[in-house]
Design a protein around this nucleic acid. Structure first.
Lengths: 219, 219
DNA sequence: CAACAATATGACAACTGATTCACCTTTCCG
DNA sequence: CGGAAAGGTGAATCAGTTGTCATATTGTTG
C-alpha cells in the first residue's frame, strides 16, 4: 500500500482505459453509465470514504459484482468520474463565454457561470476535492488541464491589449483559487449574497484593483 | 453512521473539550502533546484515512490504548489538531504584518508569509483540507475565524481610505481562495516560481487591477 | 433454435482498522 | 511507607469493506 496506486500502470494512458473491459453491447454501455452516475451521486452525498461499493450498486440498481465488470475498483471509478466531470464543466464554461467582447467580460460571465454550475452540480466540488487525497495526480490533471485553457485565454487577451502584462500563469492559479472559494462559500454553503453582487465585486477588483484609483503607482 | 458525527454533542462547546479527560500531571500533558504532534505528522504524510491509530501511537512511542486516554477517537484528534494549527498560522501571520504601512503592503507581506509558512508546514494544507470531508464544521470554523480577522482588517483599511469601497466579505473569500491555490501550486507542488514574483504579480493586481490602467470605467 | 459470448447476480472469504478492557506501572502526598 | 489516583499497555473484539467466484440470465449469430 506504499505505492502511489495505479491498477493499470501504463504510463501514458491518455483516456478511458476502462479497466476490466469496456462494454461491448448497448446494454453494457447503459449499465456502465448508470453505475458512473450512481457513483457521482453517492460520492457527492456521502463522500468517497463513507460511500461503499454497495451504496453505489444499490443506487444504480445492479448487484455488487456487476461493478467489477466495468471498473477495477473504487479508485478507478473515481478517476473516471473526475475526468468526466472535468470535461463537462469545461464544456459548460466554454459555451457560456463564446462571443463576449473582451477578457474582463469573459471573466464576469465565467465566474457567474461557474457559481451557477456549482450550485446545480454540487457533487463536482466534493468529488474533485476529495479525489485530491485519494490520488493527487487525478486532481492535478484536472487543474492543470483547466489552467492550460485559462492560460491560453489570458495570453490572447494580453496580446490583444485587453489586460495588463504580467505573469499569467500565476494569475491563472490565483483566479482559479478565487472561483473555487467563492463557489464553496456562496454557491454551496450559503446563498446569502446574490451571484450578481459577487461578480460585481470581483469585476471591480479586475477593473480597478483594490487600491484607490490612481493613488498607488507601481513601486 | 448517518449522523453528522459528534462524540460530545454539547452544542456550544467553545474550546478544548479534551474528550475523555484532560491530563492532570505534567507527564500526562507531555504524552498528550506527543500524540498530537505525531498525529500531525502522520495525517500530514499518509492522510487522515490511510493513517491508523496504530501509526499515530507508534510515531508517538506509546501503546494504542494510551491514545484513548486523551482523545475520544480519530475524529476528535483531528478537530483538536485543526484548532491548534489554526491558532498557529494566524499567530504567525499576525506577527508578520505588524507595523506595516498600509493594507496593500500588508497583503504583500501576508501572502509571502503564508507561502513561506505552508512550505515549512506542509501538513497544514493536507490536514485542513481533508478535515473538510470528515466534518465540515471543523473546516468552516477555521475559515470563518480566519475570515473574521481578515474582514476586520479590510474594514479598517476601507475606513482609512487605503482601499476602494466594496463588498469586503466577498473580497475576503476571494483573497483566501487565491492564497490557498497559490500556496498549493507554488509552495507545495512545485517551487518553480520565486515567492517574490508571485507576490509581485498579485500586488500588481491589487494596485492596478487586471484591466489596462484607466482604460475601463465602472460600468 | 443451438451454442456461445456478454452481462448480471449475491453470498462469502479475507482483511482492515477502530475501540475496549482487564491489568500493570509510575507518581504523588499525607 | 502505603495506597490511591493517574498514566500506560496491547491482545482481543467487533463492525464494516472490498473484491471473488460459481452460477444464472440475456442477447446474438450462423
Amino acid at each position: 500500500m506504499t505505492t502511489t496506486a495505479n491498477a493499470k500502470s501504463v504510463p501514458g494512458s491518455t483516456s478511458s482505459d476502462a479497466g476490466p473491459g469496456a462494454p461491448k453491447t448497448a446494454r453494457g454501455a447503459r449499465t456502465r453509465a448508470r453505475i458512473l452516475q450512481a457513483a457521482e451521486d453517492t460520492f457527492g452525498t456521502l463522500g468517497y470514504h463513507r460511500a461503499g461499493i454497495t451504496d453505489i450498486t444499490r443506487a444504480a440498481g445492479v448487484a455488487q459484482g456487476t461493478f467489477y465488470t466495468y471498473f477495477a475498483g473504487k479508485e478507478e471509478i473515481l478517476r473516471e468520474l473526475v475526468r468526466d466531470m472535468g470535461h463537462q464543466v469545461r464544456a459548460y464554461l466554454a459555451a457560456e463565454i463564446v462571443g463576449v467582447g473582451d477578457r474582463l467580460q469573459a471573466e464576469e460571465r465565467g465566474l457567474r457561470a461557474f457559481l451557477q454550475y456549482l450550485f446545480e452540480h454540487p457533487s463536482l466540488y466534493r468529488v474533485l476535492q476529495e479525489a485530491q487525497f485519494v490520488d493527487e495526480s487525478i486532481y492535478r490533471e484536472y487543474y492543470e488541464a483547466f489552467g492550460r485553457g485559462y492560460l491560453r485565454m489570458l495570453a490572447d487577451a494580453t496580446r490583444k491589449g485587453e489586460i495588463r502584462a504580467g505573469n499569467n500563469e500565476v494569475r491563472v492559479w490565483a483566479l482559479m483559487g478565487m472561483s473555487n472559494f467563492l463557489g464553496l462559500r456562496y454557491a454551496l454553503w450559503e446563498r446569502d449574497v446574490p451571484f450578481d453582487e459577487i461578480v460585481a465585486t470581483i469585476s471591480d477588483l479586475f477593473r480597478h484593483g483594490l487600491a484607490l484609483d490612481g493613488k498607488e503607482k507601481t513601486q
